[in-house]
Each structure stands twice: as structure tokens, then as C-alpha cells.
Design a protein around this nucleic acid. Structure first.
Lengths: 193, 193
DNA sequence: AAGAGTTCTTGACAAATGGCAAGAAATCAA
DNA sequence: TTGATTTCTTGCCATTTGTCAAGAACTCTT
């Protein structure tokens, strides 16, 4: 099985030796999922770390009113991890669902723990991944708190144009914190300017 | 100097031996700041990790329109860390400001790095802190995307009532993603029900 | 205690977004 | 290919939140 995309991801994030990456990814297994499959369901404990090699997916949650709220949209290549559930080994409230046919690499919490404590470079990598994810979340929060929907839409269009080809608008709307009707109106508004 | 609050914080998060905690906090130094002081300014690189022992503070950012957006409100005891700036050693866009007289413990990135690579328990602790912070951010994002301002206000009132005694309403409003006028109206609305 | 500066409240109005329902368009499954 | 299902758009109207400005209340400094 060709691990080049997975291995390359490590090199793309920070300088790390080829041999170390191969040692880290040695325990990863490959698998596929169809469109609209559930990678990780709510109320279950995440026991794996996933690397999305190809495809699109999202995480979402049912809020108090029972409405779906899309919490994140993932486009390959990237790691997909429910940090809280995985590292605290507790049930997640989020659902991770594929939005297209997807291919993954996965490894278990035991391997992650072993690597974390035995391979200094992996520790640094893990932390960097955390920092990047935390920062992205923070940026989204700032946008939510201070920009109107139209601005958030335009920014997303600029930052992640590819998702508009692969993700239904109602999911993008929910990710932006608006209704699909509002998104539709915003798109109409912008296209006629 | 009495490190009991600092040391206790480690024990409160997860099981860890007294001796290990003391080894970790050995390098921490104590200091004070007045109200409205700047702990970490924008465009500077964070070289310290801070533990807020006593007091209240916030982080904020100037958005594209030059308006202040409060990104977080901190009430002791807790760690205060600009993850992106500290771990990637790059300038931050955020400003960390005290909202009351505060006392801190600080330690340098060099000590953090040494502990991270030499003390397994510290690695676990660091990661846990990340996980908790990430989760809190994610919960706030979900609220922002799916609840109206009044609900967000009521939730905050329930979750962190103490900040309403120590933090100006205009800062809380900004933290909730609304204007101070709106917050004022919401408060009036609720008090008369 | 006085004055300056800041924060909070309020009113009038405007802008942004939501709720609902219906139809159009696109997608999916057999 | 066809029918069923889902997604997207649109209109109408309601609700929420913002903007601006003025005054009241509060806080800080001297």
C-alpha cells in the first residue's frame, strides 16, 4: 500500500527525517468508506486517529433543538480527530460523516501513545497539529463574533473554494452558522453585483 | 513563595505525583500586574507560559474594521497561553490584558520544551490542557453558530457567573459576539420577565 | 469632593437573518 | 429511464441585532 500521501503530510508540516516518518506511519492501516458513511458516531469513544487521504467529510452535532450544526468540514489530505473523545477516552457528541467516497489511514490510541512517549519528533508533530487546529478554530470564532454572514461566506469562498464543488450548500450554510435560505439569498445577491 | 495554587492546579486536572509536580513547577517565577496592564502585546512573540493565579484577564484582537473583539475571558486559576505564538514562536495578533490586579507564575519556552521531552507526565498534562481548551473553543463556536444572543448570554451567566462581577459588560458583550447596546437590552428583557 | 473619562442604558430606526411554504432543480436508487 | 428523494431557490413577513446619539450612572484620579 502506498503511504506517500500520508508520509508527505508529515514532511509538509515541519522538517522531519524520512526514517522517523516511516517509523511513525508503520502502524497505520488503510481503508475506504462510501459517501454518507459514518466514520465516528455520537456517544461512542474514539479509539483511532484518522488521516483523510482522499475525499471530503464533515463533523456535526445535534444541538438542544435537535438541529444539525456542522462543526467542521474536512478536505483531504488532513488528520481527522475528535481530540476530546480520543485523548480523554470518553464518548463524543459529534458525528463524523463522509461527504464523498473517502480513503483513510488509521492507527490506534495505543500506537499514538507509544509514539508520543518514544519519538520526540512525533510529540512535536502532535503538538503542532493541535496548535494549527486550535488556531483555525479561534479564527472561525472571531469571524463568527465580528463578521456578518455575507463576509464569512466570501472569506470561505476564498479560503476553501474546493469545498463548494463537493459539499452541499445546506451543510456549508450550517458551517457558516446560517440557514440554507439565507445562504441562497447571499449567493444571489453577490452573483448579481 | 507559596506555589500551592499552582501545584494544586496540576493535581486537579489528572492524577500526578507530588514530586513530579514540584519538579515541573520548579522553574516557575512569580509576579504581579496592575489592572489594565498588558501581559502580552500584539505583534510580539510569546516566550513565556503564564499561569494566572489570581485575578481576571482577557485576550482580544482588532478585526479588519479596527474593532476590538474579545476572544477569551480568563478567571484564575488557569493557564494563559497564546498557543500559536508560543509554540510556533511567531508574533501574535492577540492582546492579553488584565481586567483586575493579577498575580502570575511564568516559565520560559526552554523550560517547557525540556519538561515536555523529559517528563512524561508533563507531556500528558500539556496535551490535556490543549484538549480542554480546544473543546471549550469548539463549544463556543457551536453556540455562536446555533444559538441567539439571549441564549448565549443566559448560558454564560450560568457557566461563569463570577465574571459578571469583575468584567465590564462591554467586554462580555464582545465576547458573546454582540454590541453592548444589544446586551443591555437583553439584560433588561430578562430582568423584567 | 470635583471633574474627566468611561461604561451602561435607552430610543428611534435600519439592516441582517430566520421561519415557513411552495416550486424548481438536482441527485439517487431501482 | 423513471419516480422518489433531497437540495436549492424564492417570496412574504417576523424576529433579532446593529447603528447612532444622548443622557445617566459609574469609576478613577487628583
Amino acid at each position: 500500500m502506498d503511504k506517500s500521501i500520508l508520509n508527505h503530510y508529515f514532511h509538509s508540516l515541519f522538517p522531519i527525517e524520512k526514517e522517523v516518518v516511516e517509523k511513525i506511519t508503520h502502524s497505520f492501516n488503510h481503508f475506504h468508506l462510501n459517501k454518507n458513511a459514518i466514520l465516528l458516531d455520537e456517544n461512542t469513544v474514539s479509539t483511532k486517529t484518522y488521516f483523510l487521504e482522499k475525499g471530503y467529510m464533515r463533523s456535526f452535532i445535534f444541538n438542544e433543538e435537535g438541529e444539525e450544526v456542522t462543526t467542521n468540514i474536512y478536505s483531504a489530505p488532513c488528520f481527522v480527530n475528535d481530540f476530546l473523545s480520543f485523548f480523554k477516552q470518553q464518548p463524543t457528541r459529534q458525528i463524523y460523516q463522509t461527504l464523498s467516497p473517502c480513503s483513510f489511514w488509521e492507527t490506534s490510541i495505543d500506537h499514538v501513545q507509544a509514539n508520543f512517549h518514544n519519538i520526540p519528533e512525533f510529540r512535536e508533530f502532535s503538538r503542532l497539529l493541535f496548535v494549527i487546529n486550535y488556531h483555525e478554530l479561534n479564527e472561525r470564532l472571531i469571524e463568527m463574533a465580528s463578521q456578518k454572514a455575507e463576509t464569512r461566506y466570501v472569506n470561505l469562498l476564498e479560503k476553501k473554494p474546493e469545498i463548494f464543488q463537493h459539499v452541499p450548500l445546506k451543510i456549508i450554510a450550517s458551517y457558516l452558522g446560517i440557514t440554507d435560505s439565507s445562504l441562497s439569498r447571499i449567493r444571489k445577491e453577490i452573483s448579481t453585483v
